[in-house]
């Protein structure tokens, strides 16, 4: 009964009333007020749908049971049409559709109007990781192996400026009811304001290949104080204090090499495991062989389709260009591979 009353309050008081407790059972946790506004609209739609369903299917069930055939000679009346009735059942749905259209438009406009004072973060999608670049220079990457790397302050509008390195991706945070495709060759944007601290799931929702379903990330919402502390001490700001191998490790994660390769074990993922690779002999699909030296590793990064390691024929590795990874950076990665004996 309380649920029913709650539903009626949504129906009657309209736009902003919410029955959060009820909504959260059929929708993800609400990360802010916008989420609960979307849920109110959804609940209105659900209730309206349920009522129409009961009317239509209830009517159908009632008629088929009541007018079940009694004999083969049953007489049926000739009822061809009824203009009044037909007008009513066209016009009433039309009004409901226009109402939900306007309601949906209102919320959509709210979600798509970027605030001026937002905290901006660059997001880059690539197969199969999300990269977040803060203006302070802090840079974090979420690939399937590492989650909850993306940290934002609570109660502060966040604007994500997004693009993709390779194919289409889509950035979806269910808790904030927002989603936007991420497109190579141009920028799209998304904004939200988290009103609760905690961790919230991020999904890629545009199909992008083998590991599409592992292109996950989490956003961690913290207090402003904690956020600033996190940013000050983040290791990505201190590359100069790292050894070359440490920088290489940092890059293999940032450039999403780790999405497909194990570096600290020789177990295969999408591509071969790379522990102990340096200086070993490699066998290729075409039968040829080579020693895995620095030149070979550089070629495998810039021209991955040139040689396929035996057993990996046709596995399409993304090609990295010098603008993605400079020659200097490649040498850090080589140092990292060397260090994993």
């Amino acid at each position: 009964m309380r649920n029913l009353l709650a539903m009626y309050s949504v129906l009657l008081t309209g736009l902003f009333t919410t029955s959060s407790a009820w909504a959260e059972r059929i929708m993800p946790a609400q990360g802010n007020a916008y989420a609960s506004e979307v849920d109110s609209l959804y609940i209105f739609l659900l209730v309206a749908s349920l009522i129409s369903f009961i009317l239509v299917i209830g009517g159908m069930m009632y008629f088929v049971l009541k007018y079940k055939r009694k004999s083969a000679n049953d007489e049926t009346p000739y009822i061809s049409h009824d203009h009044k009735l037909e007008f009513l059942w066209s016009f009433i749905p039309f009004l409901i559709f226009m109402f939900v259209f306007a309601w949906g438009w209102k919320l959509f406009r709210e979600a798509r109007t970027m605030p001026k004072n937002a905290f901006e973060i660059h997001v880059t999608g690539q197969k199969w990781a999300w990269n977040f670049d803060y203006k302070s220079g802090v840079s974090v990457t979420s690939s399937s192996s590492e989650e909850a790397a993306f940290v934002i302050p609570v109660n502060k509008p966040i604007k994500l400026i997004m693009t993709s390195k390779d194919v289409l991706h889509s950035f979806f945070i269910p808790a904030f009811r927002i989603k936007q495709d991420v497109i190579p060759g141009r920028y799209t944007a998304l904004w939200f304001e988290a009103e609760k601290e905690g961790e919230f799931q991020i999904f890629c929702t545009e199909y992008c290949g083998d590991l599409h379903s592992q292109m996950l990330a989490k956003v961690r919402v913290v207090s402003m104080e904690e956020f600033e502390n996190w940013m000050q001490t983040h290791p990505s700001r201190a590359l100069g204090q790292m050894t070359l191998a440490e920088r290489g490790k940092y890059l293999t994660n940032k450039s999403a090499c780790t999405a497909c390769h194990n570096f600290e074990s020789s177990e295969k993922k999408i591509g071969p495991g790379l522990k102990g690779l340096f200086g070993k002999e490699r066998q290729f699909e075409d039968g040829s062989k080579a020693i895995a030296n620095a030149d070979y590793i550089m070629e495998s990064i810039y021209e991955p389709q040139k040689k396929y390691v035996k057993g990996f024929g046709g596995v399409m590795m993304n090609k990295y260009l010098p603008k993605d990874l400079s020659a200097e950076q490649v040498s850090w990665i080589i140092e990292y591979i060397k260090s994993n004996k």
Binding site: L41, L45, S49, F101, W103, G104, W105, F108, R177, T205
Partner: peptide, 15 residues
């Protein structure tokens, strides 16, 4: 109809 409504579709799209 739920999917034709803008704000709800943004959440349900591609799910």
């Amino acid at each position: 109809i739920i999917l034709a409504t803008l704000a709800t579709d943004v959440h349900f799209h591609d799910t």
